[in-house]
Every structure is written in C-alpha cells, then in structure tokens.
Design a protein around this nucleic acid. Structure first.
Length: 283
DNA sequence: AACATTGACAACCGCGTATTA
DNA sequence: GTAATACGCGGTTGTCAATGT
C-alpha cells in the first residue's frame, strides 16, 4: 500500500523557525492544548508549516520545562548506562531523564558522549539493530494475535467458557503464569544481590581497557570467551524483556526519576557483574 | 582577511505502528 | 477485515558559528 505524505508540501515553509512562528505555535497550544491533532494545527494556528514540523518544534524546543544544554555528570552517567542497556531507544532514555528530549539526548550522545567514551577507550557495546528486533517482535505479535483470535473464536462459538475452564485456555493461563514466574524469579535473583552500586557505566566494566576504579566488580571480559558469552547472553535477555513487555520502564508514569525502575536498573547491572565475576551462566 | 574544516544542534525524512473510517 | 490516516521514533542532513590554516 502506498503512503501519502503526512501533509501537502506545497507552499509550506521549511528550515529554521522564526520567533514569530514560535510565538504563534506556543500561543495556540497554550489555548487549545497538544491533543487537538498536529495535522490540523498549523492551519488553525496560522502557520505555514507541516504538522510534523510543529510537533517537533514544540516537543524539542518550545515545551515548558525543557532543559537546554549543560548536561550534568549524573545525567551523562545515566545516559551512558541507559544506552548500554537499551541501545538507541532515545525516547525511552529521554523518559528516564526529566527535562530532556530524545532529540537532545541523541545529539548530545553523538556529539559529546560517544567521543568522550571513545577517548577513554570505553566505547559502548553496539546493540542489535532495532529493525531486526522489531521484525522479531512483529512475528511474535502475529503469533500472539493468531492465538488470541483462536481463543476469541472458540469463546464466540461457546466451545470454551469465559472463566477459562477449557483445557486449552487453562494451558494458556498456565503458560503465562509460568512466564510471569520466570520474570519474578529473575527479579528475585537480582534483588538478592546487595552490592554497593557505584554508578560506573557497564561499558567500563565490559571492556578490558576502561575498568573503573570505582567499581567493586572489575572483570576483564575480553580475557575469557565464556564471560563474553555471558555478557552477550545478558544483553539478549534484557533486549527480550524490553521487547516483550514494559515491566522495567513505564515512561508515562515518570515525571521524576522513578526510584523503583532506577533500582531495577541498578539491580540488573549488579546481577550482570555477579554473573561475570562468578563465570557461571544462569540463563 | 579569506577560505576550509569542525562541532553543535535544529530540523527533516522515511518507516513502523496505532487508530479510525 | 482492510485501507487510509495520523503520530511517534530513530537516523540523517542542513545550517551556522567557532576555530584552524
């Protein structure tokens, strides 16, 4: 299926925004809110811009409460750790850092942090391609959908009850419970480790050259293939968890640092350190 | 002073997904 | 169920100021 452009490009302005345009956009959104639909907004606000462009300008520049520049060392550290965990999921990372936008963090990463880390010999691990991950996710989603459709069909046909008394449905529930149990066990295991978290980024630990003196789990991963395997496996598990559900991050509920999620992040890293140092694979 | 290069960041583009008709 | 539409995201490009030659 072909796709139409988001808006007609005819006669629309591109490039840098003027202060007058900023004022018009800000004024309109202050009066009507953000939820009136970006597509129709430019016309209503008297702007010769594409709706997408308006959204971007508002979200990344005009929205109240945004911080500009001057990233603190704490923010640097958090960005590095989140990148190591999540890869280039900038919106997810931005969701964990109040006042920062995905674009802002992405630019800062590309122009400052990456160079800084490379200079220190701490270039972070490259993540799986987001596209590949999404394809996998899509396949999984299709399977789930098929499965759900089957159940719905049977329910409609009266072959199974709404409360799950049918064997097939019970199996489904049992399977789901088992998955939940695994996730809970995983969380329990990492909660059981109560090391001091020093705030160093994992890439410092994950490479031989950049070991930080601040961590109590300094391990040379490159010296041991098995450890590398654990390292990769660990990240695969994290990737899977992040793709499968939102148990770790809930950006919508996060206006400040979400302590619980932050603790979870910390705990995951502690588990990783433990795995590498013990040289045993639990997954 | 003139030109080239680099750095920083704003903005654009194309794609995937969610929603609506 | 399907097509059309709108939105949001990540990757990339464009622009301009600062710096170097």
């Amino acid at each position: 299926m072909g796709r139409k452009p988001c808006c007609s490009k005819e006669g629309l302005k591109k490039g840098a925004w003027t202060s007058k345009e900023d004022m018009l956009l800000t004024q309109y959104i202050k009066e009507h809110g953000e939820s009136t639909g970006w597509r129709s907004l430019p016309k209503k606000a008297g702007l010769l811009r594409c709706g997408k462009s308006c959204r971007l300008r508002w979200v990344n520049y005009l929205k109240p409460g945004l911080k500009r520049g001057n990233f603190t060392p704490e923010e640097d550290d958090l960005i590095v750790r989140l990148y190591t965990l999540l890869g280039s999921r900038w919106s997810l990372i931005a969701g964990r850092i109040p006042g920062r936008t995905d674009n802002d963090i992405k630019n800062y990463w590309n122009t400052h942090l990456l160079k800084k880390l490379k200079a220190q010999g701490n270039e972070p691990r490259r993540h799986k391609s987001l596209r590949k991950s999404k394809e996998k996710e899509k396949a999984s989603s299709r399977n789930n959908q098929k499965s759900n459709n089957k159940i719905e069909k049977k329910k409609k046909e009266g072959k199974i009850s709404e409360n799950g008394s049918n064997t097939e449905e019970r199996e489904q529930v049992a399977k789901k419970t088992e998955e939940q149990q695994r996730t809970q066990n995983f969380a329990r295991v990492i909660s059981a480790n109560n090391h001091n978290f020093t705030g160093c980024c994992s890439s410092e630990v994950g490479t031989s050259s950049g070991a930080s003196s601040s961590t109590s789990h300094e391990v040379n991963v490159e010296e041991n293939d098995n450890k590398i395997g654990i390292y990769e496996k660990f990240h695969e598990v994290i990737d899977e968890l992040l793709l499968n559900d939102n148990w770790l991050f809930q950006p919508d509920q996060c206006t400040e640092f979400n302590t619980q999620s932050h603790m979870m992040l910390k705990e995951i890293y502690e588990e990783y350190f433990q795995l590498v140092s013990e040289n045993s694979c639990l997954f």
